[in-house]
């Protein structure tokens, strides 16, 4: 059963992602992006990372995608359909992105990963929380400072100047 779900989710995610980068209308691209985020959240659930899946939906869909849509709407003629979608180097980029995918896929399938099967502990979320305020407290605090700085910075940058 799981492989089927995986295949389905992968299809949704990759398809939506492909639409994100190719659609002419930016607003539609943002909506496709939301679908891709949902697909990734499904992958996380498949990997037994339920908390992360919820965080993914809350942050990416709830915040980032919304922000993107707002930005698009604030700068309306950004989605002028007469504008070309891609810059002039898109052909090269496409070629090399495909090459990169082939190479990466070849590498990840060839390497023997140190797979260690194990059951997911029941108290994942509890552990996550205690790790954040335990061994990872410094990065955690730095991340919170980063968020504050980003917030202040965003306000200052986007503020209208006389």
């Amino acid at each position: 059963m799981q492989p089927v779900i995986f295949a389905l989710l992968a299809l949704i995610t990759l398809g939506a992602a492909a639409m994100v980068v190719t659609t002419r209308n930016l607003l539609r691209a943002a909506l496709w992006l939301i679908l891709a985020f949902f697909g990734i959240a499904g992958i996380f659930i498949l990997l037994n990372a339920e908390f992360l899946a919820v965080a993914q939906i809350l942050i990416y869909v709830g915040a980032i995608a919304t922000l993107v849509i707002f930005a698009i709407m604030l700068t309306r003629n950004m989605m002028d359909p007469s504008q070309p979608r891609f810059n002039e180097q898109w052909g090269v980029v496409g070629g090399f992105a495909a090459l990169l995918f082939v190479v990466l896929a070849a590498i990840v399938t060839r390497v023997t990963w140190p797979v260690a099967a194990g059951d997911v502990p029941a108290d994942t979320i509890q552990r996550l929380g205690s790790d954040f305020v335990g061994p990872y407290v410094v990065p955690f605090e730095v991340a919170s400072v980063l968020l504050v700085v980003a917030m202040v910075g965003a306000i200052i940058i986007a503020r209208e100047r006389e």
Partner: peptide, 18 residues
């Protein structure tokens, strides 16, 4: 353009590694 140089380098180097 600059990022493209990075992409080309990485993919070619990885390909060569392979």
């Amino acid at each position: 353009n600059y990022l493209l140089v990075g992409l080309v380098t990485v993919s070619v180097l990885l390909g060569a590694f392979l």
